[in-house]
Amino acid sequence: MLENTNATAAVVESGSMGRVAYARIAPNEDLVQSIEKLCLAEGFKNAFVRGALGSLVDACLGTAGEQPRRIKGPAVEIVSLAGEVRTAEDGSVCASLSGVVADIQGNVYGGPFVAGSNPICMTFEVTLEEWLPDDANL
């Protein structure tokens, strides 16, 4: 563990990249939960989002406040998507995804996607890359 001058700890993890999975997510499936299911199906304990293309019926992004921001569609376009999936000690997976979306008027919003609140519009393509941390990190 490394410490900076502000006494905040940073964790550096070493490892290597593994397999790559490409998937098409069907309409009305949730973005976050579908990526978690994909990792479970492929046996990825940890993964990074490497690419994505598609739109959502409506979007729901987390904010610094208590209430998430809801962006009404139809067809809220995902401009960018980044994130990772991690497996907890109990075997459950949790995707942390953030991105930028544009509504039908062209307004742009960004933030973390709220699980269970981002249904896919038509289809959504995503590429995941498996992350294999070194044994010393476990």
Rank of each mutant, 00 (worst) to 15 (best):
T127G: 11
Y109A: 06
L128Y: 08
C121D: 15
P119C: 09
A115D: 15
P119N: 04
G106N: 08
V101S: 00
P112H: 12
V114C: 04
M122D: 15
A115E: 15
V114A: 04
A102C: 01
A115H: 10
I104E: 15
G116N: 07
I104K: 03
Q105I: 11
D103S: 03
Q105G: 10
V100I: 14
N118Y: 00
D135Q: 10
G106M: 02
L132N: 12
C121H: 14
Q105R: 07
V126W: 01
V100L: 05
I104M: 08
V108C: 01
V126T: 07
F124K: 06
A102P: 12
I120V: 08
L128P: 13
P112G: 13
Q105A: 09
Y109W: 12
P133I: 03
D135A: 08
P112A: 13
T127A: 09
V101N: 05
A136Q: 13
W131M: 04
T127I: 13
S117D: 15
V100C: 09
T127Y: 02
V108P: 06
E125A: 08
P112C: 11
E129S: 00
I120T: 06
Q105Y: 13
A102Y: 11
V126A: 01
C121R: 06
A102M: 07
W131R: 03
E129L: 00
N107C: 02
E130S: 06
E125P: 02
N118M: 04
Y109I: 05
E125G: 05
F124C: 10
V100A: 08
Y109K: 03
C121K: 10
F124P: 10
E125T: 07
V108R: 03
Y109V: 07
L132H: 04
L128E: 14
A136E: 15
Y109E: 15
G111I: 04
A115I: 11
M122I: 13
V114W: 06
F113C: 09
T123Y: 09
E130W: 08
V114F: 07
I120E: 10
M122L: 13
M122C: 12
E130R: 02
D134G: 13
D135H: 09
L128W: 09
A136G: 09
G106I: 07
G110C: 06
F113L: 06
Y109M: 01
P119Q: 01
W131V: 09
A115V: 11
V108T: 12
M122W: 12
Q105S: 14
I120A: 01
D103E: 09
G110K: 06
T127E: 14
W131G: 02
D134K: 04
G111W: 06
L132C: 11
C121A: 14
D103Q: 05
A136C: 12
G116F: 02
V108Q: 05
F124N: 01
C121Y: 14
D134Q: 13
D134E: 14
E125Y: 03
D134T: 13
A102E: 15
T127S: 11
I104T: 14
T123L: 05
V114P: 04
V126L: 05
W131K: 00
D135Y: 10
I104A: 11
T123H: 08
L128N: 11
Y109Q: 07
E129P: 00
L128G: 00
G110D: 15
I120M: 03
